[in-house]
Design a protein around this nucleic acid. Structure first.
Length: 842
RNA sequence: GCGGGUGUAGCUCAGCUGGUAGAGCACAACCUUGACAAGGUUGGGGUCGCGGGUUCGAAUCCCGUCGCCCGCUCCA
């Protein structure tokens, strides 16, 4: 006999190894079964599992296990991401502890170190995924820097370049002076901060007065090449074209007119710093202004900054302000809230910076991705995200894809130093090639004249190809034919733009088909305070700690029950404990089933039995509708609904009612009834384990092994997933049981008149109201409920009771046999005791 | 500025297409009854943010309002 409480230790590892070794997770690209494929959102290779992953993985595993059991050829493709900047930063931090930095090591040595790091920690997250029960096909595991995926990356870059969708140019990009690399717009986090707005006098060169401009970054005036006003601004009509003396440096700059300037903000006059502000950059383009770089990639001032040369950017700001004040050029300082950009990896304030970078032209790619969502080829669930998606896509800007770091896919571009031909000069000596070129294709210069671009690609460039690069693209593999497009992508909304949108664009571009038909965006898990979980706040819940204390099944079930669509989740450990009790309840229900089984008992199909009791019919019918509801809710990604349905059914119907009501038959002398009861009990319990398996795979597999079901497969995880046909629909039984349940629940209220016989049988009469008007005035909702239970269609207008009373007529009496309630006797004793107590007190 | 979400029991949250307010935890009382004390039975506790409207009937639909939260975007 099995233990009284469920202890997951040992059981989880045992079954995971078993499933894995048996090859149940392996997908067959030649199978006749319909394919069902999910590619995992690849976690950071050196990362460790956080609770968001746990939710993500649990939901995917539920779908995969459910589809596998439902007869699909399932592929859940696992893998990891090299996570460019993130990983490089971690390794650099580690080197710093050893007194090293990457520049001392040199590129080759450094990259080697990162690979070593990857080898050392890369397996950790995979191991953690397995401990959650993730039924991935590990034979197909991928890493974004794998050879195959690298080929795909180069191929995409080359093809996009050929079509003019990849270009190189000087633009203002977001620059992190700490990481010393460009960042895409998405990699910048904005935060509102209280800052100051400084009003500075710019004097005319002819000493005929001054113009006041306002700025939040006074140090950038060192790079000003104009002051702009709105052409419509009457205040400044007279000064257009006049020359100003740049404060502190004395350099001469013109006053220009540009419509970009907002008349109502500040003084209506704007300093123009083309090399350090994206808007000013554009203004400069329109007016042919020079670009003066006053800052280096480290955030220090250049020679152009004159006396401020070499100063750090914020130090320089202070000095500039001091000097302005001394020169009586600082008119006033206002409080001003502004939103600052921070590097999403190192939290340093990002600097708008002019530099040469590679970009992807997004508009043409976005157009197709917009229509794919609009016409439903990609369905976003919940649909609330569609607006955000479209909004972003319709205002998309070009994507800066070059990063000045070393860990990642090196850009497949070489520069010819010789440029011996005009052709080569026209091309600026740029050679884009998937292979290492042996000579310059433009001018024939030898390999020694060619230098590869130093930069690597944004880490999201390779993830954008994930759904097809992992299946073998650009080769036309069997896997690609079978599993692309994938069925569903499950991820959090935080990477909707980073990743989901870009996959849709790339999938359409290179496969001509959307990468997935559905994408389910789940909620973000927050700490119970409602804040985002983060290490610095110390409010992180470690999933492995949860599984260690409560078991994987309890933890998975908690996450699933939490996963209501479209809202954030505040995590509470108490809920996990509650669901551990649920797991234990199932465990003990199994013990009940097992003690009521004879040794080697043959379990017959219940449909053949003529001796089914009301309770048997009822539970079979309930099972039928629960199975149908679970299938339906999973179909619609209502994970929490399916979890709650099962919780409700197992605990409050199967355990609370059915197990009690079947006892008289089980312990009775009638062999036929007993046989029918045992058959039903085992059958329903076994099928329920099937329904539960995708949610709580370990405990269900363990228990299933004890059940004597004929013609069984060797594992529950490949058992056919139950449908409503595994029960027997019997609305009449449900109706009658509903009345019994109502009556029993009402025992307390009618106890004064209750005269229960000592035997376990009694009759309860439920009398419907006498008059139609009573029904109308007081009992419409009651009638409505009864009608619902009895599955009677009532008219839309319940004000016409004759419609409602099709089978429940006014004054009609319904007799309900309350038979075999095991604990009625004890309940009566208790009630009488309490009544006596009350009477005694009176 | 634009968009989205949310306000339900002491706490964390469910409540699909309108029909007598639910779960877990916490609390109180009783019960070791042949699966289960990680249990059972019963109970206390809610003006479903506030104000209107539609309806026989609204937590649910509509309008307004207050509070909290989250995205995107601009600001010199």
């Amino acid at each position: 006999m099995i233990e009284k409480t469920y202890n997951p230790k040992g059981i989880e590892e045992k079954w995971y190894d078993f499933w894995n070794k048996k090859g149940y997770f392996h997908a067959d690209s030649k199978s006749d079964k319909p394919p069902f494929c999910i590619v995992i959102p690849p976690p950071n290779v050196t990362g460790s599992l956080h609770i968001g992953h746990a939710l993500d993985v649990t939901l995917q595993d539920i779908l995969i296990r459910w589809k596998r059991m439902s007869g699909f050829n399932t592929l859940w493709l696992p893998g990891t991401d090299h996570a460019g900047i993130a990983t490089q930063n971690v390794v650099e931090k580690e080197l710093k502890k050893q007194g090293l930095d990457r520049h001392k090591l040199g590129r080759e040595e450094f990259v080697k170190k990162v690979w070593e790091w990857k080898e050392q920690y890369g397996g950790r997250i995979i191991h953690q995924l397995k401990s959650l029960g993730a039924s991935c096909d590990w034979s197909r595991e991928r890493f974004t820097l794998d050879k195959g995926l690298s080929i795909a990356v180069k191929e995409v870059f080359v093809r996009l370049h050929k079509e003019g969708l990849v270009y190189r140019g000087d633009y203002i990009i977001n620059w992190c002076p700490q990481c010393r690399t460009a960042l895409s717009d998405l990699e910048v986090d904005h935060e509102e901060k209280k800052g100051k707005l400084y009003y500075i006098k710019y004097q005319f060169a002819d000493d005929s007065g001054h113009v006041v401009v306002a700025t939040t970054r006074p140090e950038t005036l060192l790079g000003d090449t104009a002051v702009a006003v709105n052409p419509e601004d009457k205040r400044y009509k007279g000064i257009l074209g006049k020359i100003l003396k740049l404060p502190l440096l004395g350099r001469e700059i013109p006053v220009i007119a540009d419509e970009f300037v907002d008349i109502s903000f500040g003084t209506g006059a704007v300093k123009v710093t083309p090399a350090h502000d994206p808007n000013d950059f554009e203004i400069a383009g329109r007016h042919g202004l020079p670009f003066i770089k006053i800052m280096t990639g480290e955030g220090k001032m250049t020679m152009e900054a004159g006396p401020y040369y070499g100063q750090e950017r914020f130090e320089c700001r202070e000095k500039v302000l001091k000097d302005l004040e001394a020169a009586d050029l600082l008119l006033k300082v206002d409080e001003h809230t502004l939103s600052l950009g921070y590097c999403y990896r190192c939290k340093t304030i990002v600097e708008p910076y002019l530099s040469k970078q590679w970009f992807v032209k997004m508009k043409p790619l976005a157009e197709r991705a917009i229509s794919a969502v609009k016409d439903g080829r990609v369905k976003i669930i919940p649909s609330g995200w569609i607006n955000s998606y479209l909004d972003w896509m319709e205002n998309i800007k070009d994507w800066c894809i070059s990063r000045q770091i070393w860990w990642g896919h090196r850009i497949p571009v070489w520069y010819c130093k010789d440029m011996r031909s005009t052709e080569c000069k026209v091309q600026n000596g740029i050679i884009v090639s998937a292979e290492i070129p042996e000579a310059c294709p433009h001018c024939g210069a030898g390999a020694s004249a060619l230098v590869q671009d130093e930069d690597v690609l944004d880490t999201w460039f390779s993830s954008a190809l994930w759904p097809f690069s992992t299946l073998g693209w650009p080769d036309e593999t069997e896997d690609l034919r079978t599993f692309y497009p994938t069925n569903v992508l499950i991820t959090g909304f935080d990477i909707l733009f980073f990743w989901v949108a870009r996959m849709i664009m790339m999938g359409l571009k290179f496969m001509n088909k959307v990468p997935f038909n559905h994408t389910y965006i789940h909620a973000l898990i927050r700490a119970d305070s409602g804040q985002k979980m983060s290490k610095s706040k110390g409010n992180v819940v470690d999933p492995l700690e949860m599984t260690d204390i409560y078991g994987t099944d309890s933890f998975r079930f908690t996450l699933t029950a939490f996963a209501a669509q479209g809202r954030d989740i505040k995590f509470s450990e108490k809920r996990v404990e509650g669901y551990r009790h649920f797991i234990n309840k199932i465990w003990n229900a199994a013990r009940f089933v097992l003690v009521n089984l004879g040794k080697d008992e043959e379990i017959a199909p219940v449909k053949d039995s003529l001796y089914l009791s009301l309770a048997d019919k009822w539970i079979l019918s309930r099972f039928s509708s629960v199975a149908s509801e679970v299938n339906k809710s999973l179909e619609e990604y209502r994970f929490n609904d399916s979890a709650n349905l099962l919780y409700q059914f197992v605990w409050h119907e199967f355990c609370d009612w059915y197990l009690e009501m079947t006892k008289p038959a089980l312990y009775g002398k009638d062999e036929n009834s007993k046989k029918a009861a045992v058959d039903t009990l085992v059958h329903v319990f076994e099928a329920t384990l099937g329904l539960l398996h995708p949610f709580i795979p370990f405990v269900t597999e363990e228990l299933w092994q004890y059940l004597p079901i004929g013609n069984r497969t060797e594992s529950l995880c490949i058992r056919r997933f139950p449908t409503k046909a595994d029960g027997i629909e019997d609305k009449d039984a449900e109706y009658k049981m509903g009345l019994i349940m109502d009556a029993v629940s009402g025992i307390r209220n009618i106890r004064g008149e209750l005269n229960l016989p000592p035997s376990l049988e009694l009759n309860v009469t439920i009398k419907t109201p006498d008059k139609t008007t009573d029904i109308l005035n007081e009992n419409i909702s009651y009638i409505s409920k009864l009608a619902k239970t009895a599955n009677i269609e009532i008219g839309h207008d319940v004000r016409k009771p004759e419609d409602a009373a099709v089978s429940i007529k006014p004054g009609m009496e319904i007799f309900v046999p309350l038979k075999g309630l095991f604990n009625v006797e004890a309940e009566v004793k208790r009630l009488n005791k309490e009544i006596n107590k009350i009477e005694g007190a009176l």
